[in-house]
Design a protein around this nucleic acid. Structure first.
Lengths: 332, 332
DNA sequence: GTGAAAGCGCTAACAG
DNA sequence: CTGTTAGCGCTTTCAC
């Protein structure tokens, strides 16, 4: 068994309460005693047991982070932002990867609550029934990231996805494309998807006829973007431009296009969303909508930490909407 | 405050010891009592406090995962393998990103030990002084992943990096390249780097003269690969092929080459290492050495979990060395 | 089959 | 400034 404050109390003949005080830099400890305690702690190679402390303080100094797919380069960037901010306050992050499984997401949230994490940062798989799921969190503070339900009163940090979808589509339209396809992720009532909403409203604003056949839903995977695009390409009169809901999907689209011997953007233009690091690679040069990933993570941690700070009585949960940014590269 | 076993004990008038037993499916509880307990638990919306349980059982059901850079697509793949295997046994993962800072790595290990995680999976930044750092883990079981010191008796899961470096170089040589550069990560006594070792031994085996100027060290970042390659390219007689220690570096190299208006592999061949998902992207087609990332994660979790299993008395720590695999694509 | 009681390692009143 | 005493929520002997 590891050494405890009791061991060090015994060693220097003080009560272990004093040891606790000394170790925590509390007021009211004789500097000399404190020094003795510190010395003994060092000598005995003592390490505080955060978990015991947590039991009495009802605090674990741990935050949960739930993401749909850590393999999507979007999320590691967010995670780093979160971790940096959290570490600054002495918090650790439990990483939960729901793998786009709703069931797994539910399980993991429950496990996280059992573990009494102090707060959770939640990047949900989809908008669906999100409000109903809020009760899963019991009383653990949480903030949404990347996606949030419409009428929540929880905190969140997102970008304006509707606007993002709008400007992406607008860009395509201004480039002269009229036959525009949308490929996105399903498991979703399509009309719930903000980026898709933006897409639709841009079309209607510019009086571009909407062709239902050009809207396909799959997964947020390169492979899925690939097959959706294949499908699009196999049509009688395929679209001339594609708006992919995420860069990962866009990358799959480019792969399919290239495989058909077609050229981007000559034969088919592609615009993505997220601006993952790889999008700017010279051979790729994907036009996309960028989100400030690291910043999103940082902000999410920030407002969650604020909520945890009991001295902060303002019970308002911050809801932050950042602006998307069009990055024009070579695929449009 | 959340509901405790005491609340449910009060409600159905049994001792809370009984509740505990019932909840944990222990022997010696009247099926009827158990049912009542379960019903009450549900009614009260009870959730077990894993942390209190941990205090008495001296177990947290949490594993630490320390990686140098979660933003390097290599690590998320490993992480998913770990998480999948760990979740299977009811464990969570605390993600620690050392950001290639030794100091941060040390800090985080200490925090992890304070938090009494049950085990740690450790992907170290470098080989340097690794054995000396093993004491940081105190008595917490851990396994190395991706990199391990030479003479440790700890468990590890790695691939044969020396062999990997060797076959990468061999491939270049067999393609007819003689002027071969190596760009890798520093913060490292170069001679400690296994892939570099393999590189050197292939050169000597094939009697290719070694040119010290062609060996550059930087960071495991695209940006770093970019600038190292720029440097190489600015030489009087630059190399004709480059072996990059990781795909991320190789990607940076390709960027630099393309920017000079040169062609891969026509003007300069590039081989990477890791086989991150983007290496296979059609516009990239990076020849590389592949490692089974998900499998590595899975195995690491597996052997760590085995070590934690007290019923398993075999105190041997498994050391697994997997084989690297050459993936020939278009850059060589 | 069940209850009483101790204790995991620590913090937080409350005295003194 | 320091010691004593209660717990935090749970598991685990040890009795009955």
């Amino acid at each position: 068994m590891a050494v405890t404050i009791k061991d060090i109390a015994d060693k220097i003949h003080v009560s272990y309460a004093t040891v606790s005080r000394a170790l925590n830099n509390k007021y009211g400890v004789d500097p000399k005693t404190r020094e003795k305690v510190l010395a003994a702690a060092k000598a005995l190679n003592y390490t505080p047991n955060t978990i015991a402390r947590g039991l009495v303080q009802n605090k674990t100094f741990t935050l949960g982070l739930m993401v749909p797919d850590i393999t999507n380069p979007f999320f590691p960037e967010v995670a780093v932002g979160i971790e940096d901010r959290a570490k600054n306050d002495g918090y650790h992050i439990i990483l939960c990867n729901s793998k786009n499984s709703k069931r797994r997401e539910t399980d993991l949230i429950t496990l996280l609550t059992n573990k009494r994490v102090d707060g959770i940062i939640f990047a949900p798989i989809s908008h669906q029934k999100l409000i109903a799921r809020e009760k899963l969190f019991r009383n653990i503070p949480f903030v949404y990231v990347s996606k949030a339900p419409k009428n929540t009163n929880q905190g969140f940090v997102v970008i304006n996805d509707i606007l993002g979808g709008y400007i992406a589509t607008q860009h395509l339209i201004e480039r002269g494309y009229k036959r525009i396809g949308f490929i996105g992720s399903s498991g979703e009532i399509a009309s719930n998807d903000d980026r898709y909403q933006g897409f639709l409203s841009a079309l209607s604003e510019y009086s571009i006829p909407f062709d239902q056949r050009f809207t396909l839903f799959g997964e947020i995977k390169q492979q899925s973007g690939y097959s959706m695009t294949k499908k699009l390409l196999s049509m009688h009169e395929p679209p001339r431009a594609i708006f992919a809901e995420t860069d990962l999907i866009a990358l799959g689209a480019m792969q399919a296009i290239k495989e058909q011997g077609l050229h981007v953007p000559g034969d088919l233009a592609v615009i993505g969303f997220d601006d993952i690091p790889f999008a700017s690679f010279p051979e790729v040069q994907l036009t996309t909508i960028s989100q400030p990933k690291y910043r999103i993570g940082q902000l999410a941690a920030e407002i969650l930490l604020e909520m945890l700070d009991k001295s902060n009585n303002t019970n308002t949960k911050k809801q932050i909407v950042l602006e998307p940014k069009l990055i024009i590269r070579g695929t449009t």
